[in-house]
C-alpha cells in the first residue's frame, strides 16, 4: 500500500502556508506604514542646527508634539490637551468601572453558588452586554448621560459610557483571577473560623491582585482604543478641558477627525496614531509581564 499525494493534498498544503503569510504580510505592512509615517512627523526637515543638536532635535519635536496645543484644526501643533482629555476620560471610566467590576466579580465568584439564580441572571446579562456594538453604547451614553442626566457633551458622560462598555471585560478577567486562587485556601480560611470579610480581604484578594491588575490594564487598553462610543458623548472640542464637565477630545477621535474631516491632517493623524499604538503596546507588554509573573508565583506555591 503506497501513499501518494493527490492534487488536492498539494493545494491544501500550499493554502496552509499562504494564509498565514498573507496575514503576516498585511500586519507588517500596516505596522510598518504606521511606524514610518508616524516617525516621519518627528523627523526634522531643513535645519540650522548641526552635530549633536541634530540628534536631539527629534526628541524635542516629540516633546513639543506631546505637550503643545493643536493649531490650524490639528494640522500642526501638538496633542497636549487631547492627552489630558484622554487621561481624564480614562480616570472617570476606571473610577466607575473598578468598584462595580470588582464588587460584581467578588459576588459572582465568592458569595453566590454557581447555580444561584441571581448570579446566573447577572452573568447572563453581562454576556449580552459584552456583545453590544460600541456605537450602540454611544447612542445609549448620549441618551442617558448627555441628555437625560444633563451632562451634555462632556468628559464625564464619555467616561461613564466607556465604564459601561468595559465592565463585562473587567468582571470576567477579575472573576478568572479570583477563581485562580486555590480553593483549598478558602477551605482553610473557613475552617479557621474566618469571617467572609476577612477571607475576602486578607486571603483571597491579596493572592488575586496581580490577576486583577492584568484585567484592569486590559480594560484601560480597550477604553483607549475606543472611538465610536465617544464621538457623541465626550465630543470633539480640542481645547484644554478645565473640568470633567467640559467636552474633551480623546486621542482616537483626534485621529478620526484629522484623517476624515481635515484636509492635510494626515501627518499629524499618523503621529497621533503612533502615540496611541505605542501606549497600547506598552500596556500589552505590561500585561504579559504581569501575567507571567503571576503564573510563576502560582507555580512557586507548589
Amino acid at each position: 500500500m503506497a501513499r501518494f499525494k493527490t492534487r488536492t493534498d498539494r493545494v491544501l498544503d500550499i493554502c496552509v502556508w499562504t494564509a498565514p503569510a498573507l496575514v503576516s504580510g498585511l500586519f507588517l505592512w500596516l505596522v510598518g506604514d504606521l511606524a514610518v509615517r508616524g516617525c516621519g512627523a518627528f523627523w526634522p526637515g531643513e535645519s540650522e542646527a548641526s552635530g549633536f543638536f541634530r540628534l536631539t532635535e527629534p526628541l524635542e519635536l516629540v516633546i513639543k508634539f506631546l505637550t503643545g496645543a493643536p493649531e490650524r484644526a490639528g494640522r500642526s501643533g501638538g496633542i497636549g490637551p487631547i492627552l489630558v482629555s484622554t487621561g481624564l476620560i480614562l480616570m472617570v471610566c476606571m473610577s466607575m468601572a473598578i468598584p462595580f467590576g470588582l464588587g460584581t466579580a467578588l459576588l459572582l465568584s465568592e458569595f453566590v453558588a454557581p447555580q444561584n439564580r441571581f448570579g446566573r441572571i447577572v452573568r447572563r446579562s453581562l454576556d449580552v452586554l459584552a456583545g453590544v456594538p460600541s456605537i450602540v453604547f454611544g447612542l445609549f451614553g448620549n441618551a442617558v448621560f448627555s441628555q437625560f442626566l444633563g451632562l451634555r457633551f462632556s468628559i464625564l458622560s464619555g467616561g461613564l459610557t466607556l465604564a459601561c462598555m468595559v465592565l463585562p471585560l473587567l468582571i470576567r478577567s477579575t472573576e478568572e483571577a479570583l477563581n485562580a486562587v486555590c480553593p483549598t485556601q478558602r477551605h482553610a480560611a473557613t475552617a479557621l473560623g474566618f469571617s467572609r470579610w476577612a477571607t475576602v480581604f486578607q486571603i483571597i484578594l491579596p493572592q488575586a491582585t496581580p490577576g486583577v491588575v492584568v484585567g484592569l490594564v486590559l480594560g484601560i487598553g480597550r477604553a483607549l482604543a475606543e472611538t465610536a462610543a465617544l464621538i457623541f458623548t465626550s465630543g470633539y472640542v480640542d481645547r484644554m478641558p478645565r473640568s470633567v464637565f467640559d467636552s474633551g477630545r480623546s486621542l482616537s477621535i483626534h485621529i478620526y477627525d484629522l484623517s476624515m474631516n481635515v484636509a492635510g491632517g494626515n501627518q499629524n493623524a499618523y503621529a497621533s496614531a503612533l502615540v496611541l499604538i505605542t501606549v497600547l503596546a506598552l500596556i500589552n507588554a505590561a500585561t504579559n509581564w504581569l501575567a507571567t509573573r503571576f503564573l510563576q508565583r502560582e507555580a512557586g506555591n507548589f
Partner: peptide, 19 residues
C-alpha cells in the same frame, strides 16, 4: 456586593430601555 452586581446586571436592561 449584591447592590453593585445588581447595577452591573441592570446596565444591559437600561441600554435596551433607552434605545
Amino acid at each position: 456586593l449584591h447592590g453593585l452586581a445588581a447595577v452591573s446586571g441592570l446596565i444591559v436592561v437600561l441600554v435596551l430601555a433607552f434605545v
